[in-house]
């Protein structure tokens, strides 16, 4: 039987679990979140671990803030074995400490770098591709379906950019919503929050049409290049992009 260690589906729980495994020299065959259904040859193990901030501080002290951020990005990804990658990264980081990132020849390091770059990249793209609609009562409302769990990352971005606005961003893939009330934002499950109005403001269609006009006009016909456009703006995002969704 393979031992699969189970953590509650959040980053702090995962780190506490890995800390425990490392300390007790337990080698996991896999680490998965609480929703995981084991196969016939797997055995789920749920340990009762007290969450301790000191464990996290200890990890940061040993691997440095940069590495900590990187494994957080990996955690936000949809990579199949992300937990094991983080485990092996931390195992090696205990040996190489802050120099761990220079060891690109280790698979766990190159994987952490590859995946974290991918997450940062998608988050950066979404900062541009996200489209708000204005609902009644001046509420800005956006939906998206990103590959990675970037709702928190982009909420931080709009928290300072649109700080005097009420806005809501919904991740349709994970069924979670970020709500901003002009002071701060919180992220909640879709089922725990009902949006009072879904009606667009009177001005909305008008502005959308202005934007579509601009979009159509700004492309130079003699330089038309669909392949290039698609490389930069992959089709998987088009569903929510006001100016191109009709082209799908």
């Amino acid at each position: 039987m393979k031992n699969v260690y189970i953590y509650e589906n959040d980053f702090i729980s995962l780190l506490n679990l890995i800390f425990y495994l490392l300390k007790n020299k337990l080698k996991p065959e896999n680490i998965k979140n609480e929703f995981y259904t084991p196969s016939l040859f797997e055995n789920n193990i749920t340990l009762t671990i007290t969450k301790n901030e000191k464990n996290i501080e200890w990890i940061i002290k040993n691997i440095g803030k940069y590495s900590m951020k990187s494994i957080y990005y990996v955690f936000l990804s949809e990579e199949e074995n992300k937990e094991l990658i983080i485990y092996y990264f931390l195992l090696n980081a205990l040996k190489y400490r802050q120099k761990i990132m220079y060891h690109r020849n280790l698979k766990c390091v190159s994987e952490v770098l590859r995946i974290s770059e991918y997450v940062i990249h998608e988050s950066h793209k979404m900062k541009g591709f996200l489209r708000f609609k204005e609902l009644e009562k001046n509420i800005l409302y956006a939906e998206m379906e990103p590959t990675n769990d970037i709702l928190y990352l982009i909420s931080c971005h709009f928290n300072s950019r649109l700080k005097n606005e009420l806005w809501i961003i919904k991740d349709n893939r994970r069924k979670i919503i970020s709500i901003h009330d002009k002071k701060q934002f919180i992220i909640v499950k879709e089922k725990d929050f009902e949006i009072s109005t879904q009606k667009e403001s009177i001005n909305e269609k008008n502005i959308e049409n202005l934007w579509k006009t601009f979009y159509k006009t700004i492309g130079i016909k003699e330089r038309k290049n669909d392949r290039c456009r698609m490389n930069f703006m992959p089709k998987k995002y088009w569903k929510y992009i006001t100016e191109v969704k009709k082209e799908l």
């Binding site: 541009g128 591709f129 979009y215 492309g219 130079i220 290049n225 669909d226 456009r229 930069f232």
Partner: peptide
């Protein structure tokens, strides 16, 4: 870093 919000039919960033 700059942010591209869209790409026109000619592939140039908007």
């Amino acid at each position: 870093s700059g942010i591209c919000h869209s790409f026109a039919s000619d592939g140039r960033c908007i």
